[in-house]
Amino acid sequence: MSNESKVKIALSVNGEPAEVAFAPHKTLLEVLREDLGLTGTKHGCELGECGTCTVLLDGTAVLSCLVLGVACEGRAVRTVEGMAQNGQLHPLQETFADLGAAQCGYCTPAFLLVAEALLAANPHPTRDEIKHALAGNLCRCTGYIKIYEAVELAAARMRGEVAQPTRESLYGR
């Protein structure tokens, strides 16, 4: 319970070394939110059934609700808070903002991180590949379509293309 003695680990969080002490039964989700103050990582079930708590662990998208904090010693965690660099939004953040891919915004950090991992592995994903990559994340607001469009637009920009949203996605047919 709360009086169990804490463990301390060292890890990298968003590219910076961090040390954190916490009760050993805590999940990475709880450690991030409660012990590191990084509340950008959300949760929707804590059972691995929605994808909302996704973070990148050594570059791989994982469910932070099912990763033990103690298992993260020496590993690199990336959360939504680490995506913008030097006050500049990540291209995915730009396109999610511009296209309305974030409505309530609750599932957004997870989608952004999964999309980032996807684009790192596959800079030119098809719509179908995007759907499959995002199939572990539930969103109740958007119907996913604006998310696909945002990923595609960011992918194009990250490839160095000059790309703009389509007229239909902003104004309809």
Partner: peptide, 9 residues
């Protein structure tokens, strides 16, 4: 509020 929502803010 878009920027807050895409940055975890």
């Amino acid at each position: 509020d878009a920027v807050a929502k895409v940055t975890g803010g």
